[in-house]
């Protein structure tokens, strides 16, 4: 801690208390939600405590619509990753190389899906594809989600490409490599970490998405739209069980990621 933070002791203390309150604000809801998953009461609650149970976990494993929703979500997410990575990469390559006064305009249009509310992306996709007789469903959900997830991956690729040393590419071409061969052996390996990050972020964004999906999904459903419709028709702690599973998966993934990073750091330190 620098002198600045604790210098005037009082303001440092106030800030510490504030940060404490802020994290209570972040975590208290998770705690409440998780606890209700273990309550015997048939409506999600922590205040009407009827004793501990694992009953709702069993209920979840027999809930066909939820299970099918998970399958649908994964299908959509794979489609979104498969579509948005090539789109984002193409856009990034063109934008980093294009020297034109329209570059900024193109950039603005390609990132615009990030700045437009999600419901609008769903609605416009639904209207446009409806004109060519493609109605709502998983396919349309993939298209609607890809419009903005591609923008995310484009920004990731652009950040990476700005640090690219083009000398390597040129050397490969000078030595007689075909452009395709060069792309596969030089450019793609350079972009590999971004491809991985982009795939993970795109996958998570897709699974999590509700506001766009609800308009594009039609008669089909994903895990999240199914959860959404349960809010109208009968809630049960099965929803909370899903929340608990999300929390557990995240904590495991985050811990593994941190350990991995620590190890890399140590390895690098050892190499000196």
């Amino acid at each position: 801690m620098s002198a600045h933070s604790n210098g005037p002791g009082l303001s440092g203390l106030i800030l510490k208390i504030y940060i404490g309150i802020f994290f209570v604000y972040l975590f208290a809801p998770l705690l409440v939600m998780s606890l209700a998953a273990f309550n015997s009461y048939e409506y999600p609650s922590v205040t009407q405590w009827r004793g501990w149970t694992l009953h709702w976990f069993g209920e979840l494993s027999e809930d066909d619509r939820i299970l099918q929703g998970i399958v649908n979500s994964v299908i959509v997410a794979i489609g979104v990753v498969g579509l948005s990575l090539p789109l984002g990469l193409s856009g990034a390559l063109i934008l980093t190389r294009l020297q034109s006064r329209y570059t900024n305009l193109l950039y603005a249009v390609l990132v615009s899906p990030l700045l437009i509310p999600g419901i609008i992306l769903g609605i416009s996709t639904l209207i446009f594809w409806g004109r060519v007789s493609v109605s709502g469903g998983l396919f349309l959900t993939v298209l609607a989600q890809s419009s903005f997830i591609a923008s995310y991956s484009m920004l990731l690729f652009m950040a990476r490409l700005q640090r690219q040393d083009r000398v390597l590419e040129e050397a490969a071409l000078d030595l007689g490599a075909s452009s395709f061969f060069m792309f596969r052996r030089i450019t793609l390996p350079f972009l590999a970490p971004t491809l991985a990050t982009g795939a993970v972020i795109g996958f998570l964004q897709s699974i999590e998405n509700y506001n766009t999906t609800i308009f594009a999904v039609g008669g089909d459903w994903t895990l999240v739209t199914e959860i959404g419709s349960r809010f109208r028709f009968g809630l049960s702690p099965v929803i909370n069980v899903i929340g608990v599973l999300f929390v557990v998966l995240t904590v495991i993934a985050a811990t593994l990621y941190t350990i991995q990073k620590e190890r890399e750091k140590q390895r690098r330190a050892a190499l000196g």
């Binding site: 994290f23 208290a28 809801p29 609650s45 509700y210 809010f231 899903i242 985050a254």
Partner: peptide, 29 residues
């Protein structure tokens, strides 16, 4: 602190909001 920020985010938006419903409900927390 970063990790603390990210963990609530991995939980679906609907569930995150729904936790607040349980807290602020008439017979909530």
């Amino acid at each position: 602190l970063m990790l603390g920020l990210i963990i609530p985010y991995a939980i679906n938006e609907l569930l995150r909001v729904y936790a607040w419903l349980m807290i602020l409900d008439y017979q909530g927390v």
